[in-house]
Design a protein around this nucleic acid. Structure first.
Length: 303
RNA sequence: GCGUCGGUGGUAGAGUGGUCAAUUACAACAGACUGUAAAUCUGUCGCCUUCGGGCUACGAAGGUUCAAAUCCUUCCCGACGCA
């Protein structure tokens, strides 16, 4: 029996220093980095997403950055396909794939072996459904797929719409718990974490720094290239609040405040997500001793 | 100094005699998550509780009333107007 390919995952909240750490590790173990970030996949979204620069990459290959057009919705399923292909290639080259990012859903899509139904987003259907109340949506879903209706969050229109989309295409889908999962990889998960107060401070400083570097201009450019305000809203955080500022809906000051708070909320959501996985090895990236011990664990894991 | 309006929970801001521990929003905290995931959604949110309830609260002190955040008096503070 051939053993499963080994991959390293580096995850953590925004602003914890994942990219740096990943590059450092990649150097040590001849790794290549696959970004797991739902916004860094888009071209032209750099400062706003905190995308790593060429210089910061220090010659370590990075993948799944700038692979999508921000005008189009890129989905987990797209991500999964691309990532799996990249993993294969990296292993073929004899290198170690390092998945690094803060989008927990994307990371899980790869490592948990979950299968997404072959039902692409149906724009027309969504446009119709979005007008309905959540009660109506729930009724429709219940008719189409009783199983899914049992477990779904009835208050969440986004989920309801997607579930209906799937149900309409495939009929009743087996309960998730009953679907076997095939885990293709052997995974070591390292989570970077910092104390709340420190993280808050770093988030704030980073916002100011990026504004200085031209983050507002970046959003303006995206708009000039045809990204609608509506799409910016969907993209969230910097794109959402800076575009509101550019439209004159917010003052610069309240934009910064809002962005700061919302980024913190985002970081908390990330924490909630990552906390569930008990296998993750947690690490304070500012602690040299901890880094050393994690480095050793990684090397042992790869043996 | 006189006059007017106002002082409500971490903040903004409703309530103007009982149904008020006090609408709502924000913040704070916790959580969900199977093709939008930086999105979307949920819960808690004065203190104590054996979860029945108990206690302290709407600037302060008195008063009216069976009952006051709500009415009256005085005081303190703020904004505006007149001097």
């Amino acid at each position: 029996m051939k053993s499963k390919p080994k991959i390293i995952v580096i995850l953590g909240q925004t602003s914890t220093g994942k990219s740096d750490f990943a590059v450092q590790m990649a150097k040590e173990i001849s790794g290549e980095i696959i970004s797991a970030d739902s916004r860094q996949v888009y071209k032209g979204m750099d400062l706003g997403t905190g995308k790593i620069t060429k210089k910061e990459m220090r010659c370590v290959p990075h993948h799944l950055l700038d692979v999508a057009n921000p005008k189009k919705v890129f989905t987990v399923s797209d991500y999964k396909k691309l990532a799996e292909k990249k993993i294969k290639e990296i292993i073929k080259r004899g290198n170690v794939p390092i998945i690094c990012g803060g989008t927990g859903f994307y990371i899980d899509a790869i490592i948990s072996g979950q299968v997404f139904p072959e039902v692409p987003p149906n724009k027309k259907l969504r446009e119709q459904l979005i007008k309905k109340s959540k009660e109506e949506l729930y009724k429709i879903l219940k008719k189409l797929d009783k199983n899914r209706a049992e477990t779904i969050d009835q208050n969440n229109p986004v989920r309801l719409i997607r579930a209906i989309e799937i149900a309409q295409a495939l009929g009743t889908v087996p309960k998730l718990a009953d679907v076997g999962r095939l885990q293709k990889y052997e995974v070591l998960k390292i989570g970077l974490t910092l104390p709340d107060e420190l993280l808050k401070e770093r988030i704030y400083k980073r916002i100011l720094l990026r504004i200085k570097k031209g983050m507002i201009k970046e959003v303006e450019n995206l708009y000039k290239k045809g990204l609608s305000w509506k799409r910016m809203e969907e993209l969230g955080l910097e794109y959402r609040y800076i575009s509101q500022y550019l439209q004159g809906k917010l003052t610069k000051e309240t934009m910064i405040d809002k962005l700061n708070i919302e980024t913190w909320h985002y970081a908390k959501r990330q924490k909630t997500w990552f906390k569930r996985d008990k296998e993750t090895i947690w690490l304070n990236p500012l602690n040299k001793n901890e880094i050393k011990s994690v480095e050793k664990k990684i090397k042992d894991f790869l043996k």
